[in-house]
């Protein structure tokens, strides 16, 4: 596992070096403005979450082509490997971050106790480039706004294309 994850880390670093970059502040502020506009348009946090996810999904379906073309990776053999690739290569390539990967304890998956591999994983963003300058007002927090929900959509869209 450790040798595999080191290898993915190297791939991620390598691809990041060769990637065209955009200004991080411009990116963050644009995303913030987008979320604000969505909130104004829909006036409902649940609906905003849904729209962000949908936008992410549409991005993910195309981003996966870019990702595969750049990295040349082959199909993952296990779910744990998929998690490693998403964290160490994909997030590194596109956002230059490496989310911490953790697997929920096995007891938390009563549906599939016999499964040898984990069937879910958690990505924890230690620093989130989308939320760099974002300061959510209290009512947005309480209203249930998922500010970075676009990322969930991207992952869903990308994985669906290679499923």
């Amino acid at each position: 596992m450790s040798s595999g994850s080191k290898q993915y880390k190297a791939i991620g670093d390598d691809v990041w070096k060769r990637t065209d970059k955009v200004n991080a502040e411009l990116f963050t502020l644009t995303y913030g403005a987008l979320v604000v506009q969505l909130i104004k348009d829909y006036e409902d946090y649940g609906e905003v979450n849904k729209q962000l996810e949908k936008m992410g999904y549409n991005m993910g379906t195309r981003l996966i082509e870019d990702f595969l073309a750049r990295t040349g990776l082959q199909r993952c053999s296990s779910f744990a490997e998929t998690a490693e690739v998403i964290s160490k290569v994909a997030f590194k390539t596109f956002l230059n971050i490496t989310p911490t990967l953790s697997f929920p304890p096995a007891s938390a998956q009563p549906s599939n106790p016999s499964l040898p591999q984990p069937s879910e994983f958690i990505l924890t963003l230690d620093d989130n480039p989308l939320a760099e300058f974002a300061d959510l007002p209290r009512d947005a927090k309480e209203g249930g706004l998922w500010f970075s929900n676009v990322l969930c959509g991207v992952i869903r869209g990308a994985l669906e294309m290679v499923s």
């Binding site: 379906t61 195309r62 082509e65 870019d66 073309a69 750049r70």
Partner: peptide, 17 residues
């Protein structure tokens, strides 16, 4: 795939993939 397809199809918003 990595050249023309990515540049003019995947990154082309007018193409419904």
């Amino acid at each position: 795939y990595t050249g023309a397809f990515l540049e003019y199809v995947v990154r082309n918003p007018l193409i419904d993939m």
